[in-house]
Each structure stands twice: as C-alpha cells, then as structure tokens.
Computed example of a mutant assay.
Amino acid sequence: MIHETIGTNEWEWAGKPYAAIKDVGRQDGSILVVPVGSVEQHGHHLPVITDTLLVEAMVHGAAESLRDDVPILVTPPVWSGFSPHHLSFGGTLSLEFEHLRQTLEDIGRTGLENGFDAVCFVNGHGGNAALIDALVSTLGKTTDAEVLGTTYFQLAASEIAALRDSDPGGMAHGGEYETSLMLYLRPDLVVDAMIEEGTRWDEHYEWGGGDLLEGGQLSVYREFEEYSDTGDIGAPELASAEKGERIHDIVTDELGAMFTAIHEHNR
C-alpha cells in the first residue's frame, strides 16, 4: 500500500508528475536534496529505522522553513546505509561501501538530468559520513552542477551542546540526542520501558571523539559490541520530547539556511 501522505508537501519529488519535477529543476538556483539514512540496531529502546526517519524529518523541516522562491525537491530517503559494525547485534541491513556510493552517484546523476543546478546529500548515519565526503568528489567531477554533502547532527553543534544534560559521550548512538528527537517526532516507536542508563562511550584513543557532537580527529574501526552490550551508547535516560523539539528546530533552521545559501550561490 502506497503511503497516503506522499505528495502532500510541495517539495516532495515522489508525489509529482515528471513534468512538474522538470519545471522545478529548470528554475534558477534549483536544488535536489537526497536524504541518506540506514536501517540498523539502536539498542533496545529505539527502532532500526531511527537514522532514516530522523534525517527525513530534518530535511522536510528545513524545506518547510524556506521561502516560496527557493526551488527545491526532496527525494525519498535512501534507507540502507553502510553499517557493517552493527551487524553482529542483528536487525541491521547494510550495503557495501562501493555499492552504496555507486547507488547514490546514480541517484544524483539521474536527478540532475532534470535540470537542477545543485544536489545536496544530507546524511543521518555516522557510518555514512566518509562515504558522503567521497561521493561529493566522485560525482562532482562528472557534472557541471554543484555537488554537496552534510551530516545533519554535525550542524549547530555548539547550540545543541548548550541543551545537553549529559557529559561528553552522552549524545552518542541511541543516546540523549537521538532518543530526544524520537520522543518528539515518533514517541510511538520508542519503547519507554527499555530506556535506561546507557553504556558510556569508551574509546581507547583520546583523539577518537566522544559522541555525535564531538567526532574526533582519529578514525578507528571496531565492532559495535566492543563499545556496548546493548547496542546503544550514551545517556538515553536524560532524553525528553521537549529537548527533541529544540534540537529539531535548531537543526532544521540551520539546514534551511544552508539550502538558501546553496540556492543563492547557484542562481
């Protein structure tokens, strides 16, 4: 059954006839936005669709905040990411790095053929971040359109840090940040009884980062169960719907400002 809300927003690619898509693409400074998420375990209290659901919500919130004269369309989210480090817990669906990069290249390339001046990939999963960075270059060198990429939880980090009740490490995977957003956006998918004090981030190298707001300067690969017995890391017990609303509003405002800047640069 096709989702009954598809096409109810003017910026949704999926609900438009092809001619309407090309009409948007031909406008000066037009932007194609591709949300990229994942399906992976998020502990016992959050659903596996968390990353995809959240990045889609952030992109839609940003699109809704834009002036009517910013021509923008948002594709359906790419729901499978690069998540090999989560597979041992179960419930995770992961693509190979090159398969995902090539899939996103194809989506971006064919989307741009409708006349768009820019494409922006908005990522919602930490494991995709390096891939999105690579994609900007590999797709960018093949087109005259502008190719951009960002990870939404890296935006407005200082403002969101002022909202946190946890110490560094508390806003990691399935922690205070993501649980707050889910309590605000989809509380029906949060298993309240399973929200408990999470495992705190414990990386051997001090350069390895702390959580979603503090990515660190050193990359290291570890299976996720080396960090956590339950699959989540951080402080989900400090999450709240009120905090999730503030995070949502701050990030969507910042993302909307980014989209406006992309539009103005490409006019």
Rank of each mutant, 00 (worst) to 15 (best):
A157L: 07
G231N: 02
W13K: 00
A57H: 07
L104C: 06
L93I: 15
G124S: 04
M258P: 00
V34K: 01
P47H: 09
I21H: 05
D51W: 00
N128E: 03
H86R: 05
G25I: 13
I21T: 06
A241G: 11
T199C: 11
A14I: 07
E197K: 11
P35K: 01
T5F: 08
L73H: 04
Q41M: 15
F153Y: 13
F97K: 11
D211G: 04
Q217G: 12
E214D: 15
F82M: 09
E105D: 11
D202M: 11
G169W: 03
R26S: 15
S88A: 14
E214P: 00
M194N: 13
Y205E: 15
D167V: 13
E113Y: 08
S180N: 05
L183T: 09
M1K: 04
G149L: 03
A57D: 03
E146A: 12
P168M: 01
L54E: 04
I247M: 00
S83R: 09
P71Y: 10
L218H: 12
E113W: 07
E203A: 14
A241E: 02
Y18C: 07
F97N: 07
A134N: 15
L66A: 01
M182I: 05
G127S: 04
D229L: 11
K22W: 08
G210S: 14
V33F: 07
L87F: 06
E254N: 08
E96K: 11
G111L: 02
V136Q: 00
G111P: 09
E203P: 05
S83T: 14
K22N: 10
P76H: 00
M194A: 15
G210Q: 14
H173D: 09
G215C: 08
E40V: 01
G175V: 05
L148Q: 10
R109T: 10
T8Y: 11
S219T: 12
D249M: 10
I107E: 03
A118D: 04
D192A: 12
T110D: 12
A172M: 09
A161F: 10
W11I: 05
K243P: 01
L183S: 03
I160G: 03
L54R: 01
Y18V: 14
D192R: 14
T8E: 14
V122L: 08
H125L: 04
K141I: 15
L131H: 03
R26Y: 04
M1E: 10
V220Q: 10
A62M: 08
N9A: 13
G81K: 00
L95H: 09
I21E: 06
H45W: 05
G231E: 00
V220F: 12
D232N: 14
G124E: 02
G244F: 07
P168G: 01
V48Y: 05
A193H: 11
D133W: 10
G61D: 03
A157S: 12
H99S: 15
G231Q: 02
L95Y: 10
S83I: 03
V74A: 00
T151D: 00
S80Q: 13
P47C: 07
S240Q: 03
G108S: 05
L212V: 00
L183E: 01
